[in-house]
Simulated scan of single mutants.
Amino acid sequence: MLKQFFILCSGVDRDLLKDCSEGEQTKYVGIGATVFFTAVMAFLASAYALFTVFDSIYPALIFGFVWSLLIFNLDRFIVSTIKKRDRFLDEFLQATPRIALAIIIAIVISKPLEIKIFEKEINTVLLKEKNEMELANKKQIGTYFKTDLDKNKAEIAALKADIVKKEKEVNDLYSIYITEAEGTAGTKKLGKGPVYKEKREKHDAALKEFETLKKTNEAKIAEKEKAGVQLQADLDKKVSQTQPIIEGFDGLMARINALNKLPWLPSFFIMLLFLAIETSPIIAKLLAPKGEFDFKQEEAETAMKATLAQNKYQRDLLVKTSAEMHDRVYADIAEDKGLFDLQRKNAKELLELQSHKFVEKQKATL
């Protein structure tokens, strides 16, 4: 059962192969097995690749199965259409387009499996890139909010500076009128005279202004600080909103790019391995000498070509003979006097009718 299945996979003519030797059948069993297992590898590779895209196992399995059938059909077609020739160069030229197609298939199959094989290394590269993206994202968002935050902080600092400045002014006025009362400065007269009262009134007025300014500025500062907290909250919210996008930077293209950043030699050898697997049926058919099946196939093709050539020759001969017979028949008819007189009579009647019609048309125009 397994032998027949692999023979079916090889795309060989089973009616011709069943009469061949066991060794000849084994050769095509090996070719069919290679085609089958290449399709299995294609299924695994495409299923994993599509799983990274859809993040769901069922679509990945379905599309992977369809892709493996496509690869299986292509490989089976490639192997079955290569026929042995008398010269190796003719065989190689015949197989060149198929080898090119096999190389493309090998590259397509190997890439997803390379991603799986080097998954840990790729995750390390992606983690580094994600960290860099997070820092760049925070910096970009911080730059976007920086102007408003700096402006808000500057306004708060200015309001606080106004309070400090006014407070210092009040304290200075307080010292002035106290020293005036003590007689240690100003008029240097002990007691609360007119100058003292003037300075005291000036201090009291400044104190009221300070209290009003402090109350107003503190309200403004509270409002500004609230706005600053809101700006910081907006910044943090923006960062948190963009974080899932960065965390989701784990798709197929990202992994392929990460794979390309790893040393190329291991990946190259894996690709060569799949290239060898994919081209092995073709190489096997090219290197193998003509076998019993090849001779039988060539004999069947030669017999078919001979039959077709013979049929074509007979058809051409039939057409040629028929044409010669018709030429002779019409030549004899042309020499028949009775037919000539009949044709002459009919032509004369036709000319007379045409003449009458012409005369009637001319009369109608008068």
Rank of each mutant, 00 (worst) to 15 (best):
Y174M: 14
L8K: 01
F210G: 00
Q243A: 09
F36S: 03
Y330W: 11
K285W: 02
L265V: 12
A102N: 04
T34D: 08
E292Y: 03
E352Q: 09
I57W: 08
A303D: 14
Q94R: 07
D75C: 06
A136F: 10
Q354F: 05
D316R: 12
Y58V: 09
A331R: 12
R76S: 00
K238Q: 13
D148I: 06
Q25Y: 03
L231V: 10
D13R: 07
K312T: 13
S21H: 08
K116E: 11
V229F: 06
R200A: 11
I141G: 01
K151N: 15
E352K: 07
T143W: 14
P97L: 07
G338W: 10
M325H: 11
I246E: 02
E198S: 14
A219E: 10
V108P: 01
K153S: 12
I176G: 02
L126T: 01
V229W: 03
I71D: 00
I283S: 05
L70Q: 01
A47F: 05
I62L: 09
E324V: 06
F37V: 11
E132M: 07
K138L: 14
L265G: 07
G142N: 10
R98F: 06
R255N: 03
L353M: 12
T34S: 15
K168N: 08
L8Y: 01
K139S: 08
Y313V: 03
R85T: 00
T279V: 11
R98N: 05
A364C: 04
I245S: 14
A306H: 13
G291H: 00
L190M: 11
A157H: 06
F72M: 01
K160I: 04
H326L: 15
L70K: 01
N346Y: 14
Q4C: 02
R76H: 02
T52A: 02
A227N: 08
E247D: 15
E155N: 06
E360T: 14
I270C: 07
A33E: 10
I62K: 04
E114P: 01
A309F: 02
Q314V: 02
V79T: 01
K215R: 11
V239C: 09
T242K: 09
N137L: 15
S267R: 11
G183A: 05
G30V: 14
L149F: 15
Y313M: 05
Q343G: 12
L93W: 10
E335R: 12
D13H: 08
A158F: 05
A284N: 12
K345H: 12
A33G: 15
D250N: 09
E301M: 06
E360F: 11
R200G: 05
P289M: 02
A102K: 01
L339T: 13
A205H: 09
A39Y: 00
L207H: 05
Q297C: 04
T34H: 08
T81Y: 01
A347Q: 12
Y174H: 14
I283V: 12
I246Q: 03
M133R: 15
E292D: 06
K226P: 05
E114Q: 15
K165P: 00
N346C: 10
R76C: 00
P194I: 14
G248H: 02
F37D: 04
F145S: 06
I156E: 11
V229Q: 09
K120E: 09
